[in-house]
């Protein structure tokens, strides 16, 4: 019998089992999947609704030095969470611009990652924050950094039957700040022309001890320009240092022309947005002081 079937398991193990079948697709918010299905772009044999699984229920928790965001947590939950607002403002900024309120009430952080759109807003932030994901699958449980998860255009490193159970972001050690910037043509409901996540942690002397940069819409997947990050380490923050990191990040980007913008423009915007995001992250690190 052909066509799409629907299952709503109430146990994680059952979900893993169902997802192991060919043509099975996980489903939580549906803000990517249902669009693709309505427009005939994808026709799964089975849609596995994850929303009845207790381990995945919306939850943001501090645990073992991480902030853990469960798979079914939606963008509006993230936007409104006091600790996330305080410690990872960039994630709030990114969550806030995903679609509309109607979308954000349904779209999950895990889904945004699993969909692996190169223009997605949250992955550059999660990359910059050194986030990792917890995965459950037929082979058991494992952990993977976000920038390893995103392999290629709409392709993740998840194997058959694997699903993201949580996103884990390490709590900063020391004064830290982050920022997210998005460039587009209109102010809402926008797929970015370029988007940037940046994060800094400062040492006792005010120098940068760790820096993270994530770039969106400049490659087939969200990327981490490590050479640009390397520019920052050990340096004292300044507009010049940020501009230098920005320039290196620009060199590492090779964006294409597409419907939304030309590659040349995008490439020229990377240094500007990286510089500005780093600056904002630094301002926030100074505001926060030590935790």
């Amino acid at each position: 019998m052909s066509g799409t079937a629907y299952e709503r398991p109430s146990e994680l193990a059952k979900a893993v089992e169902l997802l192991a079948a060919v043509g099975a697709h996980p489903f939580s918010g549906g803000t990517d999947l249902m669009v693709a299905m309505r427009h005939g772009k994808v026709s799964p044999g089975l849609v596995v609704d994850l929303k009845a699984i207790p381990e995945l229920a919306p939850r943001i928790e501090r645990r073992d030095g991480f902030v853990e965001i469960s798979a079914n947590t939606v963008m509006t939950d993230i936007e409104r969470h006091g600790h996330v607002q305080s410690v990872f403002p960039a994630l709030v900024e990114a969550a806030q611009v995903v679609g509309s309120v109607q979308i954000r009430n349904r779209a999950t952080l895990a889904g945004n990652l699993a969909n692996a759109s190169p223009a997605a807003d949250t992955p550059p932030v999660l990359i910059a924050l050194d986030a990792e994901i917890s995965i459950a699958g037929p082979g058991g449980v494992r952990v993977m950094p976000v920038d390893e998860l995103l392999v290629d255009y709409r392709t993740t490193a998840l194997g058959r039957g694997e699903l993201i159970t949580a996103v884990r972001i390490p709590e900063p050690e020391g004064p830290a700040g982050s920022a997210f910037l998005k460039l587009g043509v209109r102010k809402a409901m926008e797929i970015s022309v370029v988007c940037v996540g940046a994060a800094l942690t400062l040492g006792s002397g005010g120098e940068i001890v760790s820096g993270g940069i994530g770039l969106g819409s400049v490659a087939p997947r969200s990327i981490r320009p490590r050479s640009a990050e390397a520019v920052l380490i050990g340096r004292h923050p300044s507009p010049e240092v940020f501009a230098e990191a920005g320039a290196v990040a620009g060199d590492e980007s090779s964006p294409i022309d597409d419907l939304r913008a030309g590659g040349e423009y995008r490439k020229a915007m990377v240094p500007i947005l990286v510089r500005r995001a780093l600056h904002r992250a630094w301002e926030r690190a100074q505001e926060r002081g030590s935790p």
Partner: peptide, 10 residues
């Protein structure tokens, strides 16, 4: 999606 008209915020 890819044909933009103004939203409330614009």
């Amino acid at each position: 999606v890819d044909y933009r008209i103004l939203t409330h915020m614009d």
